[in-house]
């Protein structure tokens, strides 16, 4: 099964989805990496995408975020004014602006999502300055607020993230994305590479922020524990296709597809 139906959602079917992906396909040479993937994402919900490496989940994320061009399929996003935009048909300026304001992307390696040579404050303030913020005090104030929200000490505001720990860098990356109040955030293994204790703290923070800010999020992870903690709904990918989908607890406690069962069984307790 490759299509997520409303029945699996238990959501208010009245409210239109924020993001609608239809029949997305992507190949690299002869290999099919995303096969006919379709799903929808509603405002304020966290959708997890799990699967082992090679399942196509990262490629899916990159296609949705327009980093990669899919071979076929549609990605539709509901803009703030209610209009539906097809991402592949947007002009480049409009798309670049969208990615800088309404969308966030949290990389697995925070170094890919930060400007290591700039101070923490500048990293957070950049999006604000890009959309026209011209008051130094206000920009710095907003940066300080967000440092507090992601639990980084304020006196680190002028330090470059180069000297931060991995966990701090990741939290800074999150702040850098959220300062523009995006309505959707894509995350690629947000806790990958972090120590276990650090992971737990980060997951708590993420969950809190998603709830507090009403964020919709698409979270790719190979770690079912992360999925259980963060995601309301879950999609399981294998070989480029969605093999199972549903509410997180249901999928993890009562897996139907053999691959899901295998994944769950091999989860370290």
């Amino acid at each position: 099964m490759s299509e997520l139906s409303l029945n699996d959602v238990g959501y208010d079917a009245e409210e239109p989805p924020l993001l609608q992906v239809s029949r997305l396909c992507k190949r690299f040479g002869p290999q099919i990496v995303c096969a006919d993937v379709s799903f929808a994402l509603w405002p304020g919900e966290v959708l997890g995408v799990v699967g082992e490496s090679g399942s196509g989940k990262t490629t899916l994320l990159n296609c949705v975020s327009t980093r990669l061009e899919p071979d076929s399929g549609r990605i539709e996003f509901r803009l703030r004014d209610g209009r539906i935009a097809q991402l592949s048909e947007m002009s480049e300026p409009a798309r670049r602006m969208l990615m800088r304001t309404d969308w966030g992307f949290v990389h697995q390696n925070p170094r890919d999502g930060l400007r290591l040579g700039l101070s923490a404050g500048a990293n957070i303030g950049e999006r604000l300055m890009e959309v026209g913020s011209r008051h130094y005090g206000e920009i710095r104030g907003a940066a300080a607020d967000w440092l507090a929200k992601v639990e980084i000490e304020i006196d680190r505001i002028d330090d470059p993230p180069r000297v931060f720990s991995g966990g701090m860098q990741q939290r800074l990356q999150i702040a850098r994305n959220l300062v523009s109040r995006p309505r959707i955030v894509l995350m690629d293994e947000p806790t990958g590479g972090l120590d276990v204790s650090v992971q737990a703290r980060l997951l708590d923070l993420l969950r809190g922020l998603c709830t507090e800010l009403g964020l919709a999020a698409l979270v790719v992870t190979h770690d079912l524990g992360v999925a259980r903690l963060l995601a309301h709904r879950l999609m399981v990918m294998q070989g480029g296709a969605i093999v199972e989908a549903g509410l997180t607890d249901q999928v993890l406690d009562d897996p139907q597809h053999p691959y899901t069962q295998l994944l769950v069984a091999s989860m370290l307790q």
């Binding site: 300026p93 101070s119 404050g121 950049e126 002028d158």
Partner: peptide, 19 residues
């Protein structure tokens, strides 16, 4: 320049004032 994306320049000025 084509997209008038000049935020990066303001970021540099911000850094100057911060430092």
């Amino acid at each position: 320049h084509a997209l008038a994306e000049y935020g990066a320049m303001y970021v540099r000025l911000y850094e100057d004032i911060a430092q």
